[in-house]
Computed example of a mutant assay.
Amino acid sequence: MPARDAVFPAGRHALYEAHGYSAAVRSGDLLFVSGQVGSRTDGSPEPDFARQVELAFANLEATLAAAGCGFDDIVDVTTFHTDPENQFDAVMAAKQQAFPAPPYPSWTAVGVNWLAGFDFEIKVIARIPAKA
C-alpha cells in the first residue's frame, strides 16, 4: 500500500502536528479534506459565529489550494453544527458565497454537541483537476 500523500496549507502545520492528523490526503484524483474550523491565527475559536463560519471556509479554501483545487472541485460536503436551527442563516450565507450557482456538491449537515470549543466544522471530498 502506498504512503499517504498528505497536503497542508501554508502556516498551519503546528495545529495538525499537535493533534496528529493531516489537513488533507490525496488519493488518486480525490482529495479528502479533514474538518476545517474557524480558528484565529493563534488557533483559538473566533467568538463571532458568522465570522467563525467565514474563517472555516477560508481555511478550507487554503487547504484546497495547497492541492491545486478550488470550491468548484468539491463533490461532497459534511458540516457539523452545535446549534443548527439558530446557525442556519450564517451558514447559508457562507455557502452561497462558496457555491453561488448549480451544480452544487452533495451536502450533509449534522448537529453535534461538541466541537472542541468551535461551533462549526466543514469537511469535504474534492476531485483534483487534471493538469493540462
Rank of each mutant, 00 (worst) to 15 (best):
L60I: 11
D48Y: 09
W107A: 04
L55T: 03
P45W: 07
Y104R: 01
A24E: 08
R51I: 02
G38E: 00
S27E: 15
V7I: 13
D73G: 11
V110A: 08
A126P: 09
I128T: 10
G11H: 09
K131G: 03
K131N: 09
G117D: 04
S106F: 08
D89C: 09
A90D: 13
T63F: 02
Q52G: 03
P129D: 10
A90R: 04
A90E: 12
V33L: 06
A116F: 02
G70R: 01
W107L: 06
G68N: 02
V124N: 00
A90Q: 09
G28P: 14
P102E: 10
N113F: 09
R4H: 13
T78D: 08
A130M: 15
P84W: 07
V110S: 08
D76C: 03
I74S: 02
L30T: 15
T82H: 04
P84A: 05
P105W: 07
V7A: 06
A14Q: 14
P9L: 09
F57T: 04
A6R: 08
W114A: 14
A66F: 10
V75D: 03
P102V: 11
E61W: 02
V110I: 14
G68R: 01
T79C: 07
P2L: 14
L55I: 05
I128W: 11
V110M: 10
A14L: 10
G68F: 01
I74Y: 05
L64P: 01
V124R: 00
F80S: 12
P2I: 13
A24H: 06
A50G: 12
D89P: 06
A18W: 08
A23K: 01
A116G: 01
S22I: 00
D5K: 08
G11T: 08
D48V: 13
G38T: 01
G11K: 09
H13M: 11
L64G: 00
D42K: 04
T82R: 03
P105Y: 06
S106N: 04
V124Y: 01
F49E: 05
N113C: 04
G38A: 00
A65F: 07
E46A: 07
F71M: 11
G70A: 07
R40H: 11
P9F: 08
S22A: 15
G28E: 15
F99L: 08
E54I: 04
A132E: 14
E121Q: 06
P9N: 05
E121F: 02
K95Y: 06
A116E: 02
Q96H: 11
A18C: 09
F88H: 10
M1K: 14
G70P: 05
D29L: 15
L30D: 14
M92Q: 08
R127Q: 10
A98G: 03
V91H: 00
Y16G: 10
S44D: 04
Q52P: 00
D42T: 05
Q96T: 13
A130T: 14
I125W: 01
T41K: 12
V25G: 11
S106G: 07
D89S: 13
L115C: 04
K95L: 06
A50E: 12
L15I: 11
A126L: 09
I122P: 08
G28Q: 15
W114Y: 13
V7N: 09
M1Y: 15
T108V: 07
